[in-house]
Amino acid sequence: MIDAVVLRVAKSAILSKFDGSYSFDKETLLDKYPFLKKKGACFVTLEYSGNLRGCIGSIIAHRTLLDDIISNAISAAFKDPRFNPLSKEELSNLNLEVSILTPPEILEYEDYEDLLKKVTPFKDGLILNYGSYQGTFLPQVWDDLKTPELFLEHLSYKAGTNPSVFAYHPSIYRYRVEAIEENFDEVLPL
């Protein structure tokens, strides 16, 4: 039930930008699904024909889960700076995923070798923070970067630095996600 509602909210938010008839009453949704009232953080990922098409999200919960899903769905579809805005023609080959994050927790480690041992592949999402450098990878990235060494190396690049940053003991935060995905066409709008 929760899975279907989360995907339906994301799909309807995207469709509402193409057709105003897909708008929905937020208060009714919040009354019917109280979990959407709680502060929550999520990422919305779009894939077109198996390739990344947009991915925007929040690391820290700072608004209701409902508002976070709506905002991140619209941003993933139309405001991801890596891609042109989504076109109506792309909807038929689109996959929609919403990942709801647990609150990040600091990962205590002694050195790089200790960090490698404490990272849990295919479960941990990680945030690297060092000075002005910050980046995150969702746990789904483990599908492409299957070892802790590769995962951390590429995370450092995403943060705008390089693997030498680990010599300076950057802050590493760990979180988990509940990922819900479906072919866009198969998700019923609200």
Rank of each mutant, 00 (worst) to 15 (best):
L46M: 03
D68G: 03
D144F: 12
W142I: 00
L145D: 04
K158D: 07
K11Y: 03
P170N: 05
N183Y: 06
S21K: 15
C55H: 01
Y130W: 14
A10Q: 10
C55T: 01
L66W: 02
G160A: 11
K146T: 11
K17E: 15
I2F: 04
Y112H: 11
N129W: 09
L107Y: 13
K17T: 04
E153P: 01
F83G: 08
E113F: 13
V177S: 06
L36H: 06
I56V: 15
N95R: 12
I60S: 05
K117N: 14
L46A: 06
F122N: 12
N51V: 02
P148M: 13
L91D: 12
T28A: 10
S49K: 15
A4E: 15
D124A: 09
E47M: 08
P121R: 08
L29R: 11
D185K: 14
L66D: 03
V141C: 05
D111A: 06
K123T: 11
F43K: 02
W142T: 01
P170L: 04
A13D: 09
K39D: 14
Q134S: 15
P139I: 10
D19L: 03
K17H: 14
E97M: 11
A76P: 14
I59R: 13
D31R: 14
N95I: 09
V165T: 08
P148N: 13
K146N: 11
F18H: 08
G40S: 11
A13E: 10
L155P: 12
K32C: 08
D114R: 04
T45K: 02
D67C: 06
